[in-house]
Simulated scan of single mutants.
Amino acid sequence: MSASYSRFETLAVHAGEPRPTHGGSIVFPIFQGTVYETPPEGGVDYLRYSNTPTQTYVHDKLAALEGAEAALATASGMAAISTALHSVASAGDHVIVAGTLYGGTHVFLTEHAPHLGWNVDFVDAADPAAWEAALRPETKAIYTESISNPLVRVPDLAGIAAFAARHGLSSIIDNTFPTPVNFRPHQIGFDLVCHSATKTLNGHSDIVAGVITGSADRIAKAHACLKLYGGSLDPHAGFLLARGLKTLALRVRQQNANALAIARFLEGHRAIAEVAYPGLESHPDHARAAELFDGFGPVLCFRPAAGLDAAEKLLKALELPYVAPSLGGVETLITRPAITSHAGMSPEARSAEGIEDDLVRLAVGIEATEDLVDDFKNALDSI
């Protein structure tokens, strides 16, 4: 594509699309085959190797949207995260982890990583002195989330990227919450960017997928790991992911607006004790988020003033949100992380991170803003 057509909305529709198209089809077809004829120059095109036509098409589109040299689609978000970490860490290596994480990632790093011979230290994502104190000669990487799940804190991301570069570490970031519409971590120096593409990148709650983006050399190393662990993306899921990416900017902007409106409404309601959303001026990381991001994403969390009982009543009283985990779809979802996304953590570990039983996480969809706010108003008035 011509360099003059570099705006995000145009890239989302046209990046990776072949011209002329296959057989005249404007929609890129699904190449369902697992194996392909060996080309004269040798090599193997094979589904598990993530190099079949549908897979490479999706890779090109994803790389363009994150502003990366290369991308690799995987069978899930956890496949992306674990593959990225495997590509930089070996037995005896040390990984620094900044901030609170998605429950699955936390369990992987605390319960599975030790079996791989990795040493992991969790540090305060906003305290550079803690990062320096955690350094060891065997430290190879630092890992963080753009916006933490579920507490929506925003680490000192520019500082983390600079710290990694200064000490020769690989910097890895999970950018699922903001998406590249709101934030592109490679622009501030992150080496590898991961997503659960199950979420907003796809946007329709109908596939499981992941993605890693980075330099060609780094993605080649991740690709070598993925081939052996087998977490390649199915062609039909790749087709659906590409479809979702074309409307990503439109969906995310509506979600940004919805989340901010609901957060402001809840912040002013007597039945709500606290609300966390980076778009609120009251959020401790608001200034940092406003500097880094073009929007604040679809996720907020809050705690009712009357505790767990009120949280459970609210979930039952709401009409529009589905009570379900996940995020990023066109529909609004609401859940208590303690019994869903972070249920794999011990109660003590959750409490230490601030993930109390009455914490509610809301992932807004693209419904009319006014209808969502009215639904919360009616539900809160009824309990």
Rank of each mutant, 00 (worst) to 15 (best):
H14L: 12
H223W: 13
T176Y: 03
D285W: 08
L314I: 02
I383H: 04
R48P: 01
A311F: 03
A125I: 08
L151W: 04
T247S: 04
V13S: 03
R336S: 13
P235R: 01
C194K: 00
G159W: 04
V193K: 11
L169Y: 03
L300D: 05
I172S: 01
R251M: 04
L135T: 01
G203C: 06
V252M: 14
A15R: 01
V252I: 11
A276H: 15
E331L: 13
P304L: 02
H94D: 00
K61S: 04
T83I: 06
H186V: 11
A91L: 00
G329W: 14
L333A: 08
T340W: 09
A113H: 12
G24A: 11
D371L: 15
I219L: 06
L300P: 10
Q255M: 15
Y49M: 05
P304R: 08
S6F: 01
V364I: 13
S341M: 10
D174L: 00
S382E: 03
L359Q: 10
V44F: 02
R7G: 14
V364S: 12
G307S: 08
L292H: 05
I212Y: 07
G117P: 14
I272L: 04
G329R: 02
L315E: 08
A73D: 07
D357L: 09
F122N: 09
T34Q: 15
R19E: 15
T83M: 05
L266E: 02
K316H: 06
P114Q: 10
A249N: 15
E319T: 09
E356P: 06
V364E: 08
A113E: 10
G268Q: 00
D357C: 04
T198C: 06
M345P: 10
R153I: 03
H204W: 13
I142M: 09
N149H: 14
N175I: 06
L116R: 13
A64K: 08
A73M: 06
G103M: 02
L85K: 01
N149A: 09
D93P: 07
L266H: 00
D191H: 05
D374S: 14
D127K: 15
A75V: 07
V299S: 04
D309P: 00
G344A: 12
W131P: 01
A125R: 14
I212E: 07
